[in-house]
Simulated scan of single mutants.
Amino acid sequence: MTEAVFRETTADPRTQSVPLSHLSLELGHLYMEDFAAGPERLRRHFDEVRIWVEAARASAARRTGGKRPRISTCFLIDDYFTRFSTPAELVPLILKEAEEAGLVIDYLARESGCAVADRIELAESVMHRLVESPPPGSHGSRPPVSRTGWLANGQRTPTTRNALAEVTVWQPPQETAARNHSVFMDVELWSEKDGRRQWSCPFLAAVWQLARLGLLRHLGEPVLTPRPWDGEDFPHDWDRLPPLLRLNDSATPFSAYRTCTLVPNRFVAVEDAVRLILDQTDVDSGALRQVAERSAGEGAAVPAAVAQRATYVFYEEPIDSSLSEGT
């Protein structure tokens, strides 16, 4: 006789999978001051990016054994820290300059969507998944990141006093996984003003990387998913523009096994901080397992460490001739 077993459906949480490309190639992540500088700044950016796109594509093809890789492109607009112009004016300009450089933007995202998308507090959700790496010999005196808003990759400089001399004794900070010498980092994840939290650029960029890697979930459901654009005019209000748009109907999936970000070298410090955050984020285990199994099945296995799946090209920005005149 077979005994029936009854179980709550919530007892077996299911992580929904997402379609995946081999590579998510970011063609730009610029601030509003870059757009305010006019079309010429965008033109120089895309002309420089175009040089590196083919190299990124060739690298992706090598990882897939010479097979044609699935590569999607994306572009991120900062509408979180400042708002400039309107989508109706700005988005067509971006698409036009990219097209003239021979580039196609498949997906367009708003940075504010990395904070909140479809009424889901994405940044808050990722913050609760942070797991600090305790430095050797630590004894719990340091407040948790959930209280301080700061995340480090080791032991901060301790403040101690010599009881006899009554003087402060300085000690250096120490990286937890130092190799011969420490490279210590302490990253601010948010600030607060008038009781309102503002997420930092590195933290929102970490959420953005997790979305591009197909690793963001809310109650098992994918979040920050692309919506198709119907081809109508773009709105005049940023809040009326979806957090993530699919502009190209023939594009391969937005999320991918790996990411490659093409940005000016002034972003180096920000992206170093992003990798620190990713290294200390407890990513959804179901999403991790799905990506690992599917990538291995395609012969495109990914590194176990999430941060190692993100690669970068930091290019030197061309000098603005208008600024150099007369100097």
Rank of each mutant, 00 (worst) to 15 (best):
R246S: 07
L247C: 05
N248I: 00
N248A: 04
N248K: 01
N248M: 04
N248C: 03
D249C: 04
D249T: 09
D249I: 04
S250L: 08
S250T: 12
S250N: 08
S250F: 06
S250M: 06
S250R: 15
S250E: 14
S250Y: 03
S250A: 13
A251F: 02
A251D: 02
A251R: 04
A251C: 02
A251H: 00
T252H: 10
T252F: 09
T252I: 03
T252G: 05
T252Y: 08
P253E: 12
P253W: 13
P253A: 11
P253C: 08
P253H: 12
P253I: 10
P253V: 08
F254G: 02
F254M: 06
S255A: 15
S255P: 12
S255D: 00
S255C: 14
S255W: 03
S255N: 09
A256L: 07
A256F: 07
Y257F: 15
Y257C: 07
Y257G: 05
Y257L: 10
R258D: 03
R258E: 14
R258F: 06
R258P: 02
R258T: 09
T259R: 05
T259N: 09
T259P: 03
T259K: 06
T259D: 05
T259S: 15
T259V: 06
C260E: 10
C260N: 04
T261S: 13
T261G: 02
T261A: 02
T261P: 02
T261Q: 12
L262E: 04
L262K: 01
V263T: 11
P264Y: 15
P264K: 13
P264E: 11
N265L: 07
N265D: 15
N265M: 10
N265S: 11
R266H: 08
R266M: 00
R266Q: 03
R266A: 03
F267G: 01
F267L: 11
F267P: 01
F267T: 07
F267N: 14
V268E: 15
V268L: 13
V268W: 10
V268H: 09
V268S: 04
V268K: 13
A269E: 14
A269S: 13
A269R: 14
A269P: 03
A269G: 03
A269T: 13
V270I: 13
V270S: 04
V270N: 13
V270D: 11
E271A: 01
E271S: 02
E271V: 01
D272P: 01
D272M: 06
D272Q: 13
D272R: 12
D272G: 00
A273P: 01
A273H: 08
A273R: 05
V274L: 10
V274N: 05
R275P: 00
R275L: 14
R275T: 11
L276G: 00
L276H: 07
L276Q: 09
I277F: 13
I277R: 10
I277P: 06
I277H: 09
